[in-house]
Design a protein around this nucleic acid. Structure first.
Lengths: 249, 249
DNA sequence: GAAAATGCTGTTATTCTAACACTAACTTCC
DNA sequence: GGAAGTTAGTGTTAGAATAACAGCATTTTC
């Protein structure tokens, strides 16, 4: 320390990768920047942390300003601090990801942004984002992919009532793997994580599926005691991959 | 943004949880603080990040100043930023953990500390450390425990030549579980991670064990392709635990 | 050469995982 | 109202992985 005040010339921000799931697609909430730097590019929602504000509080604030939601899943992932990552000065940023149910709110663009939109995650990762947000998005997506194998966080992304097929599609989007329907159902049902609501889907042009809710108590139990969702993609696919690797060598 | 300069009054530091393994014991490197605040208490080595220095660079610098080591395992874990965590101002800290081979260097106390010592991790977690370093240590220990199940990082902590029993003791210390000797050997040998050196231990008062080296190429392969060291403790112990939980309810 | 200490090794029962195909229920269209 | 279209739902089996378990081998020390 020694009172070296030139250290106290930096700032820190939080950036929030807000994931949603809709229509079989994993999505991320992006803001089109209305001002320089990077005007016109899409960026992750974020803000400087206030001088007397905790980091998590700042992340929740950003989330709430944008979505109106308070109690959602939020997790710190990584801090990015390359010297030149921000053109206006030394600003490091603490990246969070959160999981929301898209149906829980409607988007209301905040003051500093022209536009807020859900973007397909794959497409967003391939397009150019402001600052180092491509790196941040990728890191957070990897963290989510990893987390979903260890905790049943998938449920944070689904509406309160869902079908087994919807759940499977979510896991397939998160794990980037094709799963076997029967094995998936057997596994997920054997965890007693789901409550059968004895209700059926309505308004679908085919046989309606049963609706399920997830069991919060059991969820917290699994959270505490560890959880392993080691779903492997079908062997067909694995073989293809291995072959591709062999060829690449 | 908008040039609000009162944001630029904060600083950030890195703190490094340096783990070592010796004598069957997981250890952490701590510094006794020679100056206020928290004078006399043990603390994690750390420093403010220089204005034009990347975060990882700062973490490596702290590590090198203390140990002289350059190429060691280092990983960012979490950022701690409670408003009041530092008595002298708003300082958030980015926590890293690193894994070193204790035999690779000798400790040379740096200028700002009276004393540097290896501490047993369990004891250190129970004693009072400076700042929020108890929380940081615990978080990093959990991260290590988790990491070791996914990557073969254990080898970073062992000397170049080691016996299977030493390796098993390391895993037991990290996973806090007692492992079956035969199953452990079968599993670890089947990964072809180890190279049999055709050498024997010397100077032990009993039958000497074979020495092994680990296979770097194979290690990097496993790092890239995923790895699962799902060693479970013996059922006896699990049963005991479950019983204890039942009683506790 | 006996005692003490740790090294080393293989088999079996059980559990978990992966592969796989057909019938059921509902809607729409003719 | 029946045929076609669409998704829901369901069980068995072979193979792989895991967990449990005990006794002889090699070295030092006394």
């Amino acid at each position: 320390m020694n009172g070296e005040n030139n250290f106290f010339k930096s700032a820190f921000s939080v950036d929030n990768v807000i994931f949603g799931f809709d229509d079989g697609d994993l999505k991320v909430l992006l803001i089109k920047r209305g001002a320089a730097p990077f005007q016109g590019l899409w960026a992750l929602p974020g803000d400087l942390v206030y001088p007397n504000e905790d980091l998590d509080t700042a992340a929740y604030r950003v989330l709430e300003e944008l979505t109106g939601l308070k109690k959602v899943y939020l997790e710190q992932v990584h801090t990015f601090g390359a010297v030149d990552r921000h053109p206006l000065g030394r600003v490091i940023t603490i990246a969070y990801f959160s999981l929301v149910k898209i149906s829980d709110f409607t988007l209301t663009p905040s003051s500093f942004a022209q536009n807020v939109e859900w973007h397909n995650v794959d497409k967003a990762m391939k397009s150019e984002l402001a600052f180092d947000h491509n790196t941040i998005l990728e890191t957070c997506f990897n963290a989510l992919t990893h987390r979903v194998r260890i905790r049943p966080v998938g449920f944070e992304l689904l509406p309160p009532k869902f079908t087994l097929t919807e759940l499977q599609h979510l896991y397939e989007a998160l794990l980037r793997a094709e799963l076997d329907k029967r094995n998936f159902r057997k596994k997920i049902l054997s965890m007693s994580l789901l409550i059968d609501l004895d209700e059926l889907q309505e308004g679908v042009p085919h046989r309606p599926a049963k609706l399920y809710q997830f069991n919060k108590d059991r969820y917290h139990q699994l959270e505490a005691h560890g959880f392993s969702f080691e779903v492997k993609e079908s062997k067909k696919k694995e073989k293809k991959k291995r072959l591709a690797e062999l060829i690449a060598q």
